[in-house]
């Protein structure tokens, strides 16, 4: 392994962690498909922010994508509550529409630039080491993606630690939470913001299709074994890391897509865990 390999694995791990943490709450709320919807719907937000600002600078892209993520959440809820469209149908309608708009924008306006369909769908984690930066001039240099993902990871850990009770209770028993004065809507949007940000940051590395594997896979495996929520969060992170390491090894062995291999490893881990759980627990 040379340093490029290490940077790729580290970036993948950081991305897996920022997905696994909010992903646990999504899985517990049985909202995994909303994660899928958000991870696709951030595309038009990214493209519009890119077109308006003319740069791929994360400072512009993140807010645009997060706004698109919130938009999809609001739209899905509006369809369900106001127009009484059933929940799976409303999710399917909204995110495919937004994603398709994003695809049209990419193909129509950004054909000559470095934002292309390949990158949108599959990500470009293999190129991460070619985009190095350091926080201070001449300081420690690491891939830009890794900096961003680590920054978000820090934010997520702080938010989940501080907001633990709110997230926990509004996920487990929204009725009781409201009765004792905790705003379920507030914590819902906090969670959706975390998912949107995780989706955007992961998007560049693993692509729209595989973000949802990272959001739901490791938490789903963790939920098979964890007796308590803190353990579930921890286990989801462990499984995320395992999937990245093994996924990368398989990808370099087969000379295949890294993000694809990671997703496959997640699937295999899940199947394996189910069997283990059936036999030993």
């Amino acid at each position: 392994m040379n340093s490029n390999d290490l940077w790729i694995v580290f970036t993948a791990i950081a991305v897996a962690l920022i997905c696994a943490l909010p992903g646990c709450f999504l899985v517990l709320r049985r909202m995994a498909m909303v994660g899928d919807a958000i991870s696709h719907a951030v595309l038009p937000g990214i493209v519009i922010a890119y077109l308006l600002s003319g740069s791929r600078n994360t400072m512009y892209i993140l807010p645009g994508a997060a706004a698109a993520g919130m938009l999809v959440t609001v739209l899905i809820e509006w369809l369900q509550k106001r127009l009484r469209v059933q929940s799976d149908a409303s999710i399917g309608l909204v995110y495919t529409l937004l994603f398709a708009i994003g695809v049209i924008l990419v193909t129509a306006f950004t054909a000559q630039t470095d934002l292309d369909q390949e990158c949108v769908l599959y990500g470009e984690i293999a190129y991460v080491p070619f985009d190095m930066m350091s926080i201070v001039d001449g300081g420690f240099s690491a891939p830009r993606q890794l900096w961003i993902a680590s920054g978000l990871l820090t934010v997520l850990i702080i938010v989940i630690t501080l907001g633990y009770r709110g997230l926990y209770l509004s996920t487990f028993d929204p009725g009781y939470a409201t009765a004792i004065g905790i705003s379920v809507v507030f914590w819902h949007y906090i969670l959706m913001s975390m998912v949107s940000l995780a989706a955007v940051v992961s998007f560049e590395s693993v692509g729209a299709v595989l973000v949802v594997a990272l959001l739901t896979g490791p938490p789903a495996i963790a939920s098979l074994f964890a007796k308590r929520l803190p353990l579930m969060l921890l286990l989801a992170c462990v499984f995320g890391v395992l999937a990245c390491v093994f996924g990368y090894l398989i990808a370099s062995f087969l000379n295949a897509s890294i993000s694809g291999s990671i997703a496959v490893v997640i699937g295999v881990l899940y199947a394996f865990s189910l069997v283990i759980k059936k036999i030993f627990f």
Partner: peptide, 27 residues
Amino acid sequence: SYIPQRQTVDWDFPATVKDVVMMGRYQ
């Protein structure tokens, strides 16, 4: 204090008996 219908929550949730009762102290 409110005791919702038992069926309104997901009992597969990763929480122990003590965790749930402790929620009564959150307020």
